[in-house]
């Protein structure tokens, strides 16, 4: 896959809204057939970045290509080959399922629309409900319908903006099965998400915060790239321990995971010494574990906050 051609190849992309610098010098490379995860806290510029990639917004500066087409000048041609699924359900509530699909097919100038729509309905398993208004569908079904709508014109690149927000776990799992299926068929997928399990399902990731790209690579690369050392603390009397540890020397990050506590730091020895002395008289146990993706992300998020607020 490393030799596959680049579907998205942009650098130095900037976008400002008024005096807000929403995306700063974004550089992104996504290869064909890849599932590329786009992560970052809320308001970090993910949606704006995606909108620039699919030609909805024009970058203020920068250069690059999407599907071999210039993102600054050929947005119309890009739109024709990209499937973009918006964060919010953006099909028409007051059209039926079939009417929505038919309308989208028309927008993309598809021939033989009724066949295309019938096939999409069959694949969705919604043939029997084709006359139902789209607005009356449940969240999971709306999401599946949206995906079907952006696949109608056989795009080579899918841009999915938080597609699984507010969808139940079963529907999410099915959705990701479908994404992998599409990827196997050669479609490139760029998907933004907040869920760690979804991030781990991606081939490669990028982490963006406050408009700046903080890290990118495979999940393992992103985690090792932070050079974190993590101890897992378990046992009874864990309450309050997180707060107590946070300010101690060597501790860069404390994250609670239910019955366990992840404590991470860059300085392995300092962290270990701190933990040992602090836990000596408690019934708590500590074990060195490999840092998880979530540890890495929370660490990245903290770092970016320090950078932008401190």
């Amino acid at each position: 896959m490393d030799n596959a051609p680049l579907v998205i190849d942009v650098a130095g992309i900037n976008k400002r809204f008024g005096d807000k610098h929403v995306v700063k010098d974004l550089a992104l490379q996504v290869r064909e057939g890849e599932i590329f995860g786009f992560l970052g806290p809320n308001g970090s510029g993910k949606t704006t970045s995606i909108r620039m990639l699919c030609g909805l917004l024009t970058p203020d500066s920068g250069r690059g290509t999407c599907l071999g087409l210039d993102v600054l000048t050929e947005s119309a041609a890009i739109k024709r080959q990209v499937g973009y699924m918006t964060q919010r359900f953006s099909l028409w509530d007051d059209l039926t399922i079939a009417e929505n699909l038919d309308f989208v097919a028309r927008m993309f100038g598809m021939k033989d629309r009724s066949t295309v729509v019938d096939k999409a309905l069959d694949d969705l398993g919604l043939s029997g409900r084709r006359k139902q208004l789209a607005g009356t569908l449940s969240g999971g079904w709306k999401q599946r319908l949206s995906l079907a709508a952006c696949l109608l014109h056989h795009p080579k690149l899918l841009l999915l903006d938080e597609p699984t927000a507010g969808v139940d776990p079963k529907a999410r799992r099915d959705f990701w099965e479908e994404i992998h299926h599409l990827s196997a068929a050669g479609i490139t997928v760029l998907v933004s998400t907040h869920y760690m399990d979804e991030a781990e399902r991606c081939h490669r990731l990028a982490y963006i915060a406050y408009g700046t790209l903080m890290a990118s690579g495979t999940a393992v690369e992103v985690v090792t790239g932070q050079h974190l050392h993590t101890w897992e603390i378990t046992g009874t009397g864990l309450q309050g321990m997180g707060e107590a540890l946070r300010a101690l020397p060597g501790v860069d990050l404390v994250a609670s995971f239910g019955a366990t506590l992840h404590v991470s730091g860059k300085d392995r020895d300092a962290l270990e010494a701190t933990l040992k002395s602090r836990l000596r008289d408690t019934p708590l146990k500590m074990t060195a574990v490999p840092p998880s993706l979530e540890d890495a992300f929370i660490y990245l998020m903290q770092g970016s906050q320090d950078q932008f607020q401190g």
């Binding site: 739109k79 953006s90 028409w92």
Partner: peptide
């Protein structure tokens, strides 16, 4: 309703 975005994303 946010459907404008969808409309603009089409050709």
């Amino acid at each position: 309703r946010g459907t404008f975005e969808n409309l603009l994303a089409t050709p």
